[in-house]
Amino acid sequence: MKYKRILLKLSGEALAGEAGYGVTHDVLNQISEEVKDLVEMGVEVAIVVGGGNIHRGVAGATRGMDRTSSDHMGMLATVINALAMQDSLEQKGVFTRVMSAIDMQEICEPYIRRRAERHLEKKRVVIFAAGTGNPYFTTDTAAALRANEIDAQVIFKATKVDGIYDKDPMKYDDAVKFDQLKYIDVLNKGIKVMDSAAISLCMDNEMEIVVFNMFENGNIAKAVRGEAIGTKVIK
């Protein structure tokens, strides 16, 4: 295996599947099966999950909501998704911990970096919820921040498409896929793979990003083995 400790970034929209809203059991089941395989391979797995299948802070703000309130709602949506992911994994015998950036000890642990690292060393899957705990920061930025804090070797961003394109491949037939990109190219070209704060944080700390299709079975294991799938963003 090329990577021993990874951070898997899942979008909330992906968890909704074809329904477009809420959490789809089939999608949860597929992801948890692949994560279980990684744990059995000896990989230490951390997960950051978005909340766009329930509420997106920036979307609420564009419809007239106060941005801070809307972002707080989005953070709570990520907690719902994290608990759903935890339940799916534990039904398969995978030990997990949900750690929240917002204190809610009745349902999950508060985020403490050293405790998170200890959970990973004990081969528990750690699911980070509530983003960074601050408004105006996306879960992409939370993924970049947590990956650096726990000394992950790579961020795997699982999406609905098989990599990064110069434009939306769902809308344009002539979209061109990149096999490899530099951080600065992502910023300069305005490619919407992660927000600029997340890309900048990864660039400053040389954190690799691999973007791939999460709906193709076995892709996460292939990425861990270092096989050439999706698009890699590097220095």
Score class of each variant (00 low, 15 high):
Y3I: 08
L8Y: 12
G12S: 04
G12F: 06
A16E: 10
A16Q: 09
G20M: 07
G20A: 07
Y21N: 05
G22Y: 08
G22F: 12
V27H: 04
N29P: 12
Q30S: 09
E33V: 05
E34K: 04
E34C: 06
V35Y: 13
K36M: 15
V39W: 01
G50E: 12
R56I: 02
A59Y: 04
R63K: 14
G64H: 00
D66P: 06
T68Q: 11
T68A: 14
S69D: 04
H72Q: 11
A77R: 07
T78A: 04
T78Y: 08
A82Q: 05
D87N: 11
E90C: 06
Q91M: 15
Q91D: 15
F95K: 13
F95P: 10
M99Y: 06
S100L: 07
A101D: 01
M104A: 13
I107V: 15
I107Y: 11
C108P: 02
E109V: 03
R113W: 10
E117A: 09
E117F: 10
I127A: 06
F128W: 14
A129N: 03
A129P: 10
G131E: 06
P135A: 02
Y136T: 00
T138L: 14
T138H: 12
T139R: 09
D140L: 03
A152Q: 06
V154Y: 13
F156I: 12
A158P: 08
G163Q: 13
G163R: 13
I164C: 10
Y165H: 00
D166W: 13
D166K: 13
K167Y: 11
Y172W: 11
D174E: 10
A175E: 09
Q180D: 11
L181K: 01
K182E: 11
G190H: 03
V193D: 06
D195P: 05
I199P: 13
C202R: 01
C202N: 04
D204H: 07
N205Y: 13
N205C: 05
I209E: 08
V211M: 10
V211F: 11
M214I: 10
N217V: 01
N219V: 02
A223E: 00
A223G: 00
V224F: 15
G226E: 10
K232Q: 10
V233C: 02
I234N: 09
